[in-house]
C-alpha cells in the first residue's frame, strides 16, 4: 500500500506544479506543452484509481488533440503573451 500512496502523492504534486506552470508561462507554446504534461499525469492518476476507460480518453483527448488544437491556434495568432 505504501509505494502506491507515495506514487500517488508524487503524481498529485506534479499536477499542482504543472498547473502552476501553465499559468506562469508567458510563452504560450510552453504553456500548451505544460498542459499536455498535466493531462498525461492526470491520465496516470486515473489509471492508478482503476478507471482505465477515463485514462484512455484523457490521454487521447487531453494530451493529444487539445495540444494539437492549441498549437494550431498559436500558429494563427501570436506566440507570446502581451503585457497589459
Amino acid at each position: 500500500m505504501t509505494p502506491f500512496l507515495l506514487l500517488q502523492a508524487l503524481i498529485l504534486l506534479g499536477l499542482i506544479v504543472t498547473g502552476a506552470l501553465i499559468i506562469a508561462f508567458k510563452d504560450l507554446l510552453a504553456a500548451a506543452i505544460a498542459f499536455a504534461a498535466f493531462s498525461l499525469l492526470l491520465s496516470i492518476e486515473f489509471y492508478i484509481l482503476q478507471a482505465p476507460d477515463v485514462a484512455i480518453a484523457e490521454a487521447g483527448i487531453g494530451a493529444g488533440l487539445t495540444t494539437a488544437i492549441f498549437l494550431i491556434a498559436i500558429r494563427g495568432t501570436k506566440r507570446f503573451e502581451e503585457k497589459e
Binding site: A57, G60, G64, L65, A68
Partner: peptide, 9 residues
Amino acid sequence: FQGGAVMAT
C-alpha cells in the same frame, strides 16, 4: 469514443 480519439490523435 476512446478508440476514435486515439485514431484522431
